[in-house]
């Protein structure tokens, strides 16, 4: 079953007098439950691609379909809802809220979900804290955690809304290779147990190898698809 579908996606950035085309006609289909790496050198358009799938930006041309909904033509409030219900984000620099502790950071997206009551919220957060191995650190603030622990919190936060897709933009770039692999393994385990699609970007070959499928981006073009 198709989870994400990109049709002839183009994305231009207007840099004053010059226009930069970051994506030059991308066609991509991602099925539910896939664990996919988007690889490519810096500036190849990986982040742009993830931003479009994550409904954070609009394509210049083409269509983005998420769970059967054409999101590239939706207004801001509907995109907010799609991001809240369907998509989870993991960022390169973790993007945790510094004043909130581990529990509160993970709980944050659920605070604006009217369909999740406080009991359910507590249950989900507690389970996820245990799943990412941070049961002993739930009262700690991000500044008191290691890089790997912070990214675990980010993984838990991305999953707490039970999204269909989790997007991770270079999730291991700020981690040492051992911790990076641990994070990818954690994501892979969750992917298998919850059938959530994971799409992550990276240029680290050790990390790329952990993906089920790899899409290589180069110069705004999707060069090849590689299934492991």
């Amino acid at each position: 079953m198709v989870s994400v579908e990109l049709k002839a996606i183009k994305k231009d950035y207007d840099l004053g007098k010059t226009k930069v085309r970051a994506l030059k006609g991308i066609n991509l289909t991602i099925d539910k439950g896939e664990f996919i790496a988007v690889a490519g050198p810096s500036g190849s358009g990986k982040s742009t691609l993830l931003n479009l799938i994550g409904c954070l930006d609009y394509p210049t041309a083409g269509e983005v379909w998420i769970d059967g909904v054409l999101v590239s033509s939706l207004g801001e409030s509907k995109l907010n809802k799609i991001r809240l219900h369907t998509i989870g984000f993991i960022f390169q620099s973790f993007n945790l809220i510094p004043v909130l502790n581990v529990y509160e950071n993970i709980e944050l997206p659920l605070l604006i979900r009217k369909d999740v009551n406080s009991c359910e919220r507590k249950k989900r957060v507690t389970n996820l804290i245990a799943a990412v191995g941070l049961a002993g650190q739930k009262k700690q603030r991000p500044a008191e955690l290691s890089g790997g622990q912070r990214q675990r919190v980010a993984v838990a936060r991305a999953l707490v809304t039970r999204p269909a897709i989790v997007l991770a933009d270079e999730p291991t770039a700020n981690l040492d290779s051992k911790t990076g692999i641990e994070i990818i393994e954690l994501m892979h385990t969750i992917n298998k147990s919850q059938a959530t699609s994971f799409i992550f970007s990276t240029h680290d070959p050790k990390i790329i190898r952990r993906a089920d499928k790899i899409h290589y981006l180069e110069d705004g073009h999707l060069k090849q698809e590689h299934t492991l």
């Binding site: 907010n80 809802k81 219900h85 944050l108 936060r157």
Partner: peptide, 16 residues
């Protein structure tokens, strides 16, 4: 900015 971007990515509307 980073915090606002994170909140918006998590699904917070601009008014929230």
């Amino acid at each position: 900015y980073k915090e606002i971007g994170t909140l918006r990515a998590l699904g917070f509307s601009k008014f929230t």
